[in-house]
Nucleic acid binder design. Structure first.
Lengths: 164, 164
DNA sequence: ATAGATCGTCAGTAATGCTGATGGTACATC
DNA sequence: GATGTACCATCAGCATTACTGACGATCTAT
C-alpha cells in the first residue's frame, strides 16, 4: 500500500486517543487474566464483591459496575461454574441473590489483581511518574464530575467499533 | 435497592476509568453529531480524507483509523448515500477505490468538526487547563509509544461490555 | 388481602466485528 | 507476451455483546 501521506490527524482527537487507550489496556488485561481463567469483567465483579461490607446482590454489583442486570446473570453463571462465587437466596429478601466469593475465588482475585496491577504499570510505562499521576488524577476528576452530574452511562452504552 | 455500602473500588482502576471516559465522550459525540447525520466513525473517515494530500483508497483510510477494511465498505456506503463522499475507481490502479469528499461532505465536515471540538471542550470542562493539557499529552505519549512498539490494535479489537 | 414495585431469569432482537471466499486488477518473472 | 503471485473491494456467514420485554417469585404499603 503506497503511502498517500496520511498525517495522523486523529492523534489530536480526544475520542480517538481514549478509544485506543481503552482498547489497548483492555486487550492487555484480557491477555494477562487468561491464566486465571477470568475476563476483566469477571475480575471487576469479584473485586466489588470482595470490597462490599455486606454481601451484595446481583443487581447491586451490576449497578456499581455499570452493567445491565440481565448481563450480570451470565457473568455470575460463568464465575459460579468456575467455582469462584456462590449464589444464595437472601434470607432477609428472598428476591435477592446474594453473591459470595469462595475461597478459590478469593485466591483467584488476589492473584489476578496482581496481574491487573502489572498491566496498568506496563501501560503507564511510557510516561514519567508525574505524567502517570496526572493522567490518573485527570481521569478520576472527570469520572467524579460525570458521576456527580448524573452523566453516567445509562448502564452499558458502548458501541464498539474503532476510533472515531 | 438498599445501599449495601459498595465503596467505589473501581474508581482507582485505570481500565475502568478509561472505559468510562471513552464511553462518555463517545456517547456525547454521537449525540452532538446527530444533527449532521453522521456518526463519529463517519466523521473520522471524512477527516482522514480531507487531511490526505492525495485521495486515499478505502484500505488506506481503514488502516489509518484502525478499522477493518470490510467494515469500511459499509461506512463509505453510508456516507455515499448521504452524498458526502464519492467512490471512484483509481485511474492509476483500478483495484483501488479512491474516495473523495463532495462539497456537501466538506461543509458537513467543517460544521460537524466544530461540534466535535465543543464535545471535547465540554468533556474536559471539569479539569483546569493544566490538567486538561496533561491528560491529552499523556494519552498522546501512550499512543505514540504503543504505535512505535507495534502494539496497535490488530485493527478493531474492542469487546464492548462495561467497565472492567 | 390486594396492588404496585423489585429481583432474577430468559427469549428475542439489534449492532458490530471478524473470517473466508470471490472477482477484478496489478506487477514481476520468465 | 503469458503466467503466477499479491492486492483491493465486496459479500456472506459467524460470533460476540448488549438491550428490550416478558415472566414468576417476592416484598411492601395500603
Amino acid at each position: 500500500m503506497k503511502d498517500v501521506c496520511l498525517p495522523d490527524v486523529l492523534a489530536g482527537r480526544l475520542g480517538y486517543l481514549l478509544k485506543h487507550a481503552y482498547a489497548g489496556i483492555a486487550g492487555a488485561m484480557e491477555e494477562a487474566l487468561a491464566p486465571f481463567s477470568v475476563i476483566p469483567r469477571e475480575l471487576a465483579v469479584m473485586t466489588v464483591i470482595d470490597a462490599a461490607r455486606e454481601q451484595p446482590s446481583q443487581l447491586e454489583i451490576a449497578a456499581q459496575i455499570g452493567m445491565d442486570r440481565t448481563t450480570m446473570v451470565g457473568v455470575i453463571d460463568s464465575l459460579e461454574k468456575k467455582g469462584y462465587v456462590e449464589r444464595r437466596r437472601s434470607d432477609r429478601d428472598r428476591r435477592r441473590n446474594v453473591v459470595t466469593l469462595t475461597p478459590e475465588g478469593l485466591t483467584c482475585l488476589r492473584e489476578a489483581d496482581q496481574a491487573r496491577e502489572r498491566v496498568e504499570r506496563d501501560f503507564l510505562a511510557p510516561l514519567d511518574a508525574a505524567s502517570a499521576r496526572a493522567l490518573t488524577e485527570a481521569l478520576q476528576a472527570i469520572y467524579r464530575a460525570r458521576k456527580a452530574a448524573g452523566s453516567m452511562l445509562p448502564a452499558g452504552r458502548l458501541h464498539c467499533g474503532r476510533p472515531d
